[in-house]
Design a protein around this nucleic acid. Structure first.
Lengths: 226, 226
DNA sequence: GCAATAGTGTCTATTAGACAATATGGG
DNA sequence: CCCATATTGTCTAATAGACACTATTGC
């Protein structure tokens, strides 16, 4: 096959990083959607094109895209799936790497849209929108990976503030999995987790017995561990 | 930043599918390496560039690349990891998707190199070669994913012939994990697997009690199931 | 004391690991 | 019979699920 520079749009695919960003909003799992102002218009996962002159890797692209939407440097970016083909993006042959990202719930209000984009925090299972590209499928896949990771115990720490109680951690897991967990069994399971540390003398007080506060342990760097 | 067509090599990254192909060779897990004839020369995982005029997806690229090396249409291609950056390939900014593939052991001898490439089946943990690009890391990652999948029970079926005994299945799992498994516990675990079917009346005979032959069950399409 | 939530204990069913026992063919 | 491997059984320790109990605060 002969190739010319005129064909470059056809021969060189668009390279994209898309991000499924999850957070907890008053106990419910939510995902960030944006309303695109450029064609194709409609609701989509936040994403953007690789810029080889800036990005040292496609992971960098994901971080950069997300920072431009959230104004926060996010921890825990994890590759989920690669989607590609000539039809999934009307602009041409494209390859898109989906990332899973988690936003601590106390940073929720730092996330705002810019002038040209509307944003929305949606229930990942019922967004209320049909997403453009193949983002409906991507979101479903991200949710599946997120749920699989909960059993590690470590991942939900990314969604919590620096200090949290075991009950809050349990409620976080329940919100992700959409199931009720037994308090006793839950605490037994996480008791020996190397990622949890008591904060000595720190308690959450209310109209009841105070709750011991915990934090992510030293060595837990908010990156995924295998 | 201004962009011109002259910069296209810089602005459009190489898009590559690499494959970690595993098989069983007389009870030992082996992976396929090729000796590159083009620069950079040296040993590497089999891989190749996306061709948007042929491939309907990057998964197609992986299938195509592998078919050109093995002359077999392989089942079970699974995405493992995406590596990218300006330095990992001396030819320029590149993005490479690594795939995990499994070759049934009775098809081992169908795999031959072409005239320009040497191939070798190597112990994935001690290849005896330093691989070019970042393929050492990729291979390590593929092996990790392969081992994680063994607990499903389904995946080792891809490495076995159409008919096999439970002992052969156990030895396959042991070869992948490099641990000894208890016969009784192993059979208890897979007893209720929906992916295993007895072949009625079919036995492997030897100088001992005959062994019941099994096959992958109807509905097991040799694709990964979540 | 009472309400409310934190934190622990207990019983049982299920599962995993180790090992033993039995079964069935070929010679 | 004997050998070799297939297949099943058994005992025990660890684990998971359900539920109940105790603990400690604010009011």
């Amino acid at each position: 096959l002969q190739r010319t520079k005129q064909q470059s749009k056809w021969l060189f695919p668009l390279v994209i990083a898309d991000v499924a960003l999850f957070t907890l909003d008053r106990g419910s799992l939510k995902t960030l959607l944006i309303q695109r102002t450029n064609a194709p218009t409609g609701w989509a996962l936040p994403g953007g094109l690789l810029d080889p002159s800036i990005d040292r890797s496609l992971d960098d692209t994901a971080t950069r895209v997300l920072a431009s939407k959230t104004h926060i440097n996010l921890f825990h970016l994890e590759q989920v799936i690669v989607r590609s083909g000539p039809k999934r993006d009307p602009r041409g042959w494209s390859i898109s790497v989906l990332y899973l990202a988690l936003l601590p719930s106390d940073k929720l209000h730092a996330v705002v849209g810019n002038k040209t984009e509307a944003i929305a925090w949606c229930d990942p299972e019922h967004t209320g929108h049909r997403l453009v590209f193949d983002h409906d499928l991507m979101l479903k896949e991200a949710l599946r990976v997120l749920r699989n990771r909960v059993t590690d115990g470590a991942l939900p720490l990314h969604l919590l503030p620096l200090r949290f109680t075991l009950t809050e951690l349990q409620h976080t897991c329940e919100a992700i999995l959409k199931v009720k967990l037994d308090k006793s069994a839950f605490r037994r399971q996480i008791r020996n987790s190397p990622w949890l540390s008591k904060v000595p003398g720190a308690y959450l007080r209310g109209a009841q017995r105070p709750a011991q506060l915990y934090r992510a342990a030293n060595g837990f760097n908010f990156k995924v561990s295998y």
